[in-house]
């Protein structure tokens, strides 16, 4: 028996919105410690790594480890049927063909059940080596989303250059070029508005706008985003999910031919 309950479906709704552009299907691995998803996009350029800890749920029970293949499009449609304040419960038997989503309104007067067929998927896991990153930047997630959106108008790629002075995003295309520089905030009262740079050595990397613009769909999950970069390794773009876990996106850089 697997059962996981969240007091408000809003978190799960936001998680689905944050992955649906990149993934069509994904395996949800459920164990005593929580729910994990690791999946690459079809082009093998980016990877989504989602971790929801069991202690972050209002109720969590997982008698046997389960790997449930889910269609992300269908799951997104089902989650859109829930109000943000509804309680959501995921339920499956030990060797499931289906998973049930149960939405209960706050006043308990409305109870909705949606059953979704699971799909058989080959489980492909990637070994991600422990990496000490040259630059780790924490910045407001809305600012990052804004910069990705703005610079996407100028080219297909954004170059991120990070040094002690700050972080610079730039894009160039047929119509011109653009760059946005953010300095490290000196003494931000509000943690959420801070730009913090932890730099061992400067880095300069180029990434496809298309993927960055998919990652920033996670913006509603967290006020801050963490970008970890080293020369010639994938970018890690991380959003905390309240007290329950995190979503990390890995993105292979564009390299000079």
């Amino acid at each position: 028996m697997f059962e996981a309950r969240l007091a408000q479906s809003a978190i799960l709704k936001k998680v689905l919105e944050a992955v649906k552009d990149l993934l069509t299907e994904a395996t949800f691995e459920c164990s005593d410690s929580g729910i994990q998803v690791q999946a690459m996009d079809n082009a093998h350029v980016s990877l989504v790594s989602l971790n929801l800890r069991s202690d972050g749920f209002d109720k969590y029970r997982c008698d046997r480890n389960l790997s449930m293949g889910m269609n992300i499009g269908t799951m997104t449609k089902i989650l859109r049927c829930a109000s943000s304040e509804d309680t959501v419960t995921l339920r499956a038997v030990d060797s499931p063909d289906n998973i049930i989503f149960i939405f209960e309104s706050q006043n308990k007067e409305k109870l909705a059940e949606y059953e979704m067929k699971l799909i058989n998927m080959d489980l492909e896991h990637l070994g991600i080596p422990e990496t000490m990153y040259s630059c780790v930047v924490k910045m407001p997630s809305q600012e990052f989303a804004r910069i990705c959106r703005d610079l996407s108008q100028f080219g297909e790629a954004i170059t991120i250059a990070c040094s002690k002075e700050g972080i610079k995003f730039s894009a160039a295309g047929d119509y011109g070029n653009a760059n946005v520089k953010l300095a490290q905030t000196a003494d931000s009262d509000k943690e959420e508005e801070a730009v913090l740079i932890d730099m061992q050595e400067p880095v300069k990397l180029t990434f496809a706008c298309r993927y960055l613009n998919s990652f920033v769909k996670a913006t509603p999950l967290c006020a801050q985003v963490k970008l970890s970069m080293s020369s010639d390794v994938p970018l890690v773009c991380e959003y905390q999910i309240g007290e329950i876990g995190h979503i990390r996106y890995y993105l292979a850089p564009k390299i000079d031919d």
């Binding site: 980016s46 990877l47 390794v233 292979a252």
Partner: peptide, 14 residues
């Protein structure tokens, strides 16, 4: 123009 690298260049399947 820079070309898009594959994630599998960095991470291995396990």
């Amino acid at each position: 123009t820079p070309i898009q690298n594959d994630l599998l260049e960095y991470f291995s399947l396990i």
